[in-house]
Nucleic acid binder design. Structure first.
Length: 700
DNA sequence: TTAGGGTTAG
């Protein structure tokens, strides 16, 4: 990565925004490279002065104690020593394979293993396989790992518990939870590590329910859990946002005498943060006997995610050192909470501070912030992208996502081809973004091709997000039967998002029976999803099932389910203006409503008839004001934009929910009648309105 | 004299 080029990026997107605090330009922990290389020389000199094994062991112990043994520098040194051994024995080969497996360059581990198969007279043994499998896990190299698994079976080592436990971890890490579970089930005498491996991979593979089920099974089998088990269980609680169970786990840890340690405390901290209880996190944080960078970063994340940026910046300042993860937490939380300008401001601060150096995550979030700012800034995103020398898979994927959000499906596909040309292997995120691009641009055949090739050609097992995207692609294009078949064939249980994609398609294509089926599945999985009741209510209303509509309305009231209110914001003359549905609070509301009346008149002249099918019967009747236009927040924002911005300025609106069909039509007409460019970002994507057309080609 | 599982940001 080249800093001077990134500086260019910083200047081209310098945002005029004030953050709660501007960090110090220099980070307290700048690594001094000169010092480091002189220490390398000293250690090597010490090793070379050794005349017997005892002395060598002493140096080794010292290196382990200070942690410098894991400095990549010494692996190269070890390799040089290894290369001078005329006939290394199996033990020596294993040592080198192990060193590479947990190094920054695990692929070397695989290469050494292959060299060993030809260059060593002995066969790989029960020690070799766990190291090689670990390297394959690090690399997410599903095909390589499978081959190694096969070799282990052929060498009659297929039932070794260490090898099986590594394999559970390996398959899980590669996304094949099904296979991970099968290996686990076949493990003859499961020990605590077997259980930990399977619980951990399910927790990390977005299957927290299964992870917790496995934990219960483990208890039933009377296997005593340890601290590592609890880390996995806490991670599952965090993902489920199940604070109550998380608290129970904390009690369980105390009652069962499981030793607290730094990692376990960090996992508890993370659980509290993910469950939204920053207060409990802070109490633990204050009483933790030992804290590391992860503890600080988790706490920082807690405050940032809850929008408490003052406290977040205070934590940031108090941290012993601000590594790139800490910066990334700030950038990503600003970016994800719809504050792309603040995100870019933090990126600028980072650039000014010179250290730490931005990594792939920084660029991903910065690119996302650029794309959030609209079409003009997508060009900036391209500049950021082009200025980065080391593009990892996430940077490429972020760029694909940027194009996907703007409905530029072909551009997304082009970027993907270039990524393959650059020899960067796509991962699960790449395919999610790619499928999303296909969905937004109506590229059905391409979507199908990617979906069915991702596993055989690239070793990426389709996850629930990929299924949801594929169902969406098929549903939107009217291939409802195929979408249903796909859901039925899923190897993993469909989530609410998968059924939601089908439901959306049903709404458009009018298949009410199927919609009811999808709804009942979704209600089981996500009973407090307000949007779902709205959709279901619409479906009942369309089929004239008024009794069901009123029953549903009562249910929603009884359950106390609140909907997310539609809210649009627009920036004009340096400040942000927010509008809610039928809002009367804006100081210029009189002008805005008279502008809307004028718009309504002009739209009527060109034959526009409000499309009331998008009105949400009964459930949203309070939103229905007696106006010529249905006053969704985006219309208010656009009207305000017409009044306040000069004709040459694009009207940029951000909406928290999905844009409705009527607002979409109105925006198209306004862009033509008033000769304005309108950029509307909704929950999922961008719409660029110009000359009466939208960039999404009415396909969203 | 070698072994497997763990927490933060996409």
């Amino acid at each position: 990565m080249c800093l001077c080029k990134c500086d260019q990026v910083a200047t081209l997107s310098t945002p005029l925004i004030s953050l709660p605090r501007h960090p110090n330009p220099s980070s307290p922990t700048t690594v001094n490279n000169d010092l480091r290389s002189s220490s390398h020389t000293a250690v090597i000199a010490q090793i070379e002065q050794c005349t017997n094994i005892a002395q060598l062991k002493q140096v080794h112990a010292q290196m382990l104690r200070t942690g410098i043994f894991f400095d990549p520098y010494y692996i190269d040194y070890a390799r040089q020593v290894f290369d001078q051994i005329p006939h290394p024995n199996l033990y020596t080969w294993n040592t080198l394979i192990r060193a590479y497996a947990s190094s920054a360059d695990p692929v070397e581990s695989i290469f050494v293993f292959l060299d060993m198969l030809y260059g060593c007279s002995e066969c790989p043994n029960k020690y070799t396989y766990p190291f090689v499998i670990k390297a394959a896990s690090e690399l997410r190299a599903l095909l390589t790992g499978r081959a190694v698994h096969g070799m282990a079976i052929k060498s009659s080592l297929g039932l070794d518990i260490y090898i099986l436990n590594s394999l559970v971890h390996f398959y899980g890490t590669c996304g094949d939870l099904d296979l991970a579970r099968r290996v686990f089930v076949k493990t003859p005498k499961k020990d605590v590590v077997s259980w930990n491996s399977v619980i951990t991979v399910f927790a990390q593979g977005n299957c927290p329910e299964e992870a917790l089920e496995l934990f219960k099974e483990m208890e039933a089998e009377n296997v005593e859990p340890n601290d590592v088990t609890m880390v996995g269980v806490l991670s599952a609680c965090g993902q489920k946002v199940d604070l109550e169970f998380g608290r129970w786990v904390c009690l369980y840890i105390a009652r069962n005498g499981i030793t607290e340690n730094l990692t376990l405390n960090n996992a508890v901290l993370d659980m509290y943060v993910k469950c939204g209880s920053v207060e409990e996190a802070k109490i633990l944080f204050d009483r933790m006997p030992e804290k590391d960078i992860v503890s600080w970063t988790t706490m920082l994340d807690g405050y940032a995610q809850s929008g408490n940026y003052d406290k977040a910046w205070r934590i940031f300042d108090a941290m012993p050192s601000q590594d790139i993860a800490a910066w990334n937490v700030l950038i990503s939380s600003y970016e994800q909470s719809g504050k792309p300008k603040e995100a870019l401001a933090v990126f600028n601060e980072l650039q000014k501070s010179k250290s730490p150096i931005p990594d792939g995550v920084t660029l991903v979030n910065t690119l996302a912030a650029c794309s959030q700012l609209g079409a003009i800034d997508l060009d900036k995103a391209l500049e950021v992208f082009n200025s980065v020398e080391s593009r990892d898979v996430f940077v490429w994927s972020a760029m694909i996502s940027g194009f996907a959000m703007h409905g530029q499906g072909r551009d997304a596909l082009d970027i993907f081809s270039k990524m393959l040309e650059a020899k960067v292997n796509p991962n699960a995120v790449t395919f999610t973004n790619l499928l999303c691009a296909c969905s937004h641009a109506g590229l059905v055949d391409e979507g199908r091709m990617f979906f069915y090739q991702m596993e055989p050609a690239y070793g990426v097992v389709p996850g629930v997000k990929h299924y949801a995207c594929m169902v969406d692609i098929l549903g939107r294009s009217g291939n409802l039967e195929e979408a249903v078949e796909l859901i039925e064939k899923m190897k993993i249980p469909p989530t609410a998002s998968v059924w939601g994609a089908l439901l959306g398609a049903c709404g458009r294509n009018g298949s009410f029976e199927l919609a009811e089926k999808a709804c009942s599945h979704m209600l089981e999985l996500d009973p407090r999803n307000h949007g779902l009741y709205v959709l279901l209510s619409n479906i009942y209303a369309k089929t004239g099932k008024w009794e069901e509509v009123s029953g549903l309305r009562k249910l929603v009231q009884d359950l106390g389910i609140k909907k997310e209110r539609g809210c649009s914001s627009i920036e004009a003359n340096g400040s942000v203006h927010e509008f809610l549905v039928g809002d009367n609070f804006h100081p210029m509301c009189k002008e805005i409503y008279s502008k809307l009346d004028e718009i309504a008149g002009r739209l009527k002249l060109v034959g526009y008839v409000p499309n009331k099918s998008h009105l949400l019967h009964f459930l949203e009747e309070e939103d229905m004001k007696d106006h010529a236009l249905i006053l969704h927040s985006e219309k208010l924002a656009i009207a305000f934009g017409l009044i306040s911005l000069s004709p040459s300025q694009p009207i940029q609106v951000v909406k928290n929910l999905c844009v409705c069909g009527d607002c979409h039509t109105v925006a198209k007409l306004i862009s033509k009648l008033y000769g304005r460019v309108i950029l509307l970002r909704d929950r999922y994507r961008f719409h660029h309105f110009k000359d009466g057309h939208c960039s999404c080609n009415d396909y969203w």
